[in-house]
Design a protein around this nucleic acid. Structure first.
Length: 568
RNA sequence: CGGAGUGUAGCGCAGUCUGGUAGCGCACCUGGUUUGGGACCAGGGGGUCGAAGGUUCGAGUCCUUUCACUCCGACCA
């Protein structure tokens, strides 16, 4: 393509709401255009080309792994979501609306229901299984706070795949195959990534893994081990039980006056004990279907932090929200002096697993200005669960190595679903014995538009994008320095025609602008290689540039064609 | 949902306190000069000043209402 014929509205100025490199360069390079600044974006020709390239890699690898592509309706009747129970449960991110006949509809944020519906209508026998169907289609999630450009938009392009099996084992086989397939996809796209254990979230189901593109700007915190290849999202990370070098304080059970001592820090100071021997009691309101809710207390060691997603799972709630002091008072609780023993009527408490063998613990007395010392939880009958957020320096549960945090962008997520959807939605098949059995499912997602942002987050410099080989909008960028110099132009045209004839996707910058402007745009657009035809043509030389290192190589005009032929 | 802020040309902003002809930079169009690191000169086009209502002879500016967007937070009792 010729630059003069392409719509590439590059700008010098940075949009004022953009802070992330990917956001800035995708806008400045004219890849995408913000729509009303509300997490919606138009893809301009260059952005669309990149999107297609990424999509193509995804499609090729999936097809190679035996998946079949379909395309599901974006607008979904609410009745399907009511059947699965998610119409209520999904929360405000689900955009609900009515058509002219007052029927309820939603814009699909994910398509389990729709795909299950498709399969239950067409698959009846074990002979038709297994099946892995996918689509690359729009999704809409009405995010609380869309930001960071394509990283967290409300409308986005996603590849979502669903597999259907006759047994758990077969589903696990497919799950492993998808893990391998995803690794191939991310590797081909030139990304540095890590596969980590994850929480299953609103999708439900058991085992799940996330594909994290490593980047400091990532929104997810992932826990990795220094020694082994353990990696997990902070929401799902586990560790060896923590130990404390300091001896437990000797104490028999007693009630202590602790006026105004409200925080773990103050308490630790007051009793001169390590926070390890204090009980942190966190109150949350757990929200359930049909507007039901209840106050729940979570008890953990004072040296630990509550991991909210784990806590939410422990009480099987849709969400956890904070509780105001007034609400606490109504429930008979006092902020700053709460504890898991001596509870008022109707309050449930969940203990962290690491309190199972704890004794000599200090906790709130549920009475203003009083704490209890010498508490023991050994052998008590109670609801124990994993509630703690793994911290840096904790011990790896697999090998004992030291755990540390790193940041990642969630680019892919695969789930073992089981019969979470097939059962309520009646997605069944007849087995060899003619018995009706629910299909076992897996589901697999890749954030395709987010991948564009992830690629740039990992591959950019202070001047712009650096696309990887398989994601680049063009293979080669030919820059004619001075279009009015007939010889330069003639060589540019000649190279352009020759490369096009070879099937290389090449961009010819034939604009009337000066050299500097064109060079800046080249760096901004970030096509992997460029040929500059300029001043040195008088000595029979042109320049071959590699974008990544901005490495410039002088080549004689006679040799440039053969050099390019080698490269492409 | 809580806090803060912003809505004026495609983008970035000034003008609002103290009411009186709608401005600047970038981008765009025309002509000319320039061509190795985002050029220069001259001319030009483009605005229901977020929306609705009110005060006034007169509102971008003052008052009321409303909508949208951005940023920070939504976590340890």
């Amino acid at each position: 393509m010729r630059f003069t014929q392409l719509l590439i509205p590059t700008t010098k100025e940075t949009p004022n709401d953009a802070t992330l490199a990917s956001h800035i360069y995708l806008i400045r390079g004219g890849f995408i255009q913000s729509v009303g600044g509300s997490g919606l974006y138009n893809f301009l020709p260059l952005g669309k080309k990149v999107l297609d390239k990424v999509q193509c890699v995804v499609k090729e690898e999936l097809d190679r792994a035996g998946c079949q592509e379909v395309s599901l309706s974006f607008v979904t009747p609410a009745s399907l979501w009511q059947e699965s129970g998610r119409f209520e449960k999904y929360g405000k991110e689900l955009l609900r609306f009515k058509d002219r006949k007052e029927n309820d509809f939603i814009l699909g944020p994910t398509h389990e229901e729709m795909m299950v519906n498709l399969v239950r209508q067409t698959v009846k026998s074990y002979k038709q299984l297994p099946l892995n169907l996918y689509q690359i289609n729009l999704k809409f999630r009405d995010e609380i706070r869309p930001r960071f450009g394509l990283m967290r938009g409300r409308e986005f392009l996603m590849k979502d795949g669903y597999s259907f099996h006759t047994s758990e084992e077969d589903m696990k086989r497919e799950f492993d195959l998808m893990e391998e397939t995803y690794k191939k996809i991310f590797t081909r796209l030139g990304l540095e990534f890590r596969v980590v254990e994850a929480d299953s979230g609103a999708i439900g189901g058991s085992g799940s893994k996330e594909f994290m593109v490593l980047a400091d700007s990532g929104e997810d915190t992932i826990v990795v081990c220094d020694k082994c290849d353990y990696g997990a999202n902070i929401e799902a990370a586990v560790r060896q039980p923590k130990e404390c070098e300091v001896e437990a304080p000797e104490a028999t059970f007693a009630r202590f006056h602790t006026p105004g001592i409200k925080t773990i820090e103050a308490l630790s100071e007051y009793f001169k004990v390590d926070p390890y021997y204090l009980v942190k009691t966190v109150a949350k309101r757990a929200l359930y279907d049909e507007g039901k809710s209840r106050i729940v207390l979570f008890a953990l060691r004072g040296s630990d932090e509550l991991q909210e997603v784990k806590a939410c799972n422990a009480v099987d709630a849709n969400d956890l929200v904070d509780v105001s002091e007034e609400e606490l008072a109504e429930a008979g609780l006092v902020a700053g002096f709460m504890g898991p023993t001596t509870l008022p009527e109707g309050i449930t408490v969940i203990y962290d697993n690491e309190l199972k063998n704890a004794s000599s613990m200090i906790c709130g007395a549920n009475e203003k200005d009083y704490h209890l010392v010498g508490n023991s939880f050994v052998g008590i009958e109670a609801h124990f669960d994993d509630l703690v957020a793994v911290q840096e320096g904790d011990r790896c549960a697999c090998c004992g190595g030291s755990l540390r945090y790193t940041k990642g962008i969630e680019a892919g997520h695969i789930f073992q679903l089981g019969t979470r959807y097939s059962e309520p939605l009646g997605c069944v098949f007849l087995d060899e014995n003619g018995k009706s059995v629910p299909m076992v499912m897996g589901t697999y997602g890749i954030g395709v538009s987010r991948l564009l942002a992830a690629i740039i987050e990992q591959n950019h410099d202070e001047n712009g994008c650096i696309w990887t080989k398989e994601s680049a909008p063009f293979d080669l960028h030919i820059l004619v320095s001075n279009i009015k110099d007939e010889e330069q132009l003639a060589w540019g045209e000649k190279l352009y025609a020759a490369m096009k004839a070879k099937g290389v996707d090449v961009l010819l910058d034939d604009r009337k602008d000066r050299f500097g402007a064109k060079m800046k745009d080249y760096e901004l657009l970030g096509i992997p290689h460029a040929v500059v035809i300029g001043k040195n043509l008088a000595e029979g030389k042109v320049e071959f540039i590699t974008r990544k290192e901005m490495h410039k190589e002088e080549v004689s005009v006679e040799e440039i064609l053969s050099l390019l032929e080698e490269r492409f």
